[in-house]
Design a protein around this nucleic acid. Structure first.
Length: 106
DNA sequence: CTAATGACATTTG
DNA sequence: ACAAATGCCATTA
């Protein structure tokens, strides 16, 4: 396989600009899967270290979720990019959330 | 192929 | 709102 599920996640996540955040569920749907856990698995194994902003991925509720190097580290990086996190939740999450799936031009 | 795991999401009490 | 249970999907043993 030249393009595994994980690689697709990285490629998609790579498009996320700085100061923006996305959710596992959105990525999963964007890849044609409803398994947000599968995305998290890919992030955990993420061989494409700092290249891929895996720290910009949070839960669908705006929560941070987890991180391979420690949730605290994730929050620190996010705060460094302009994403404020309080009580383990992203501030203005809905405003900073970035959807992948192309919206239906209705 | 089956079973187990995991950085989630949704529903129910 | 929080905790527990169930569902969903990809990866690994």
């Amino acid at each position: 396989m030249v393009s595994t599920f994980s690689e697709r996640c990285y490629d998609l996540l790579r498009k996320v600009p700085r100061g923006r955040v996305t959710t596992y569920g959105e990525i999963a749907l964007a890849l044609g899967s409803g398994g947000a856990r599968a995305v998290g698995q890919a992030m955990n194994k993420n061989p494409y270290a700092p290249q891929v902003p895996c720290h910009r991925v949070v839960l669908g509720d705006g929560k941070i979720g987890g991180f391979a190097s420690g949730v605290k580290r994730k929050i620190e990086m996010l705060r460094n990019e302009g994403v404020v996190v309080v009580d383990g939740k992203v501030v203005d999450f809905d405003n900073k959330f970035l959807g992948f799936r192309v919206p239906k031009t209705l």
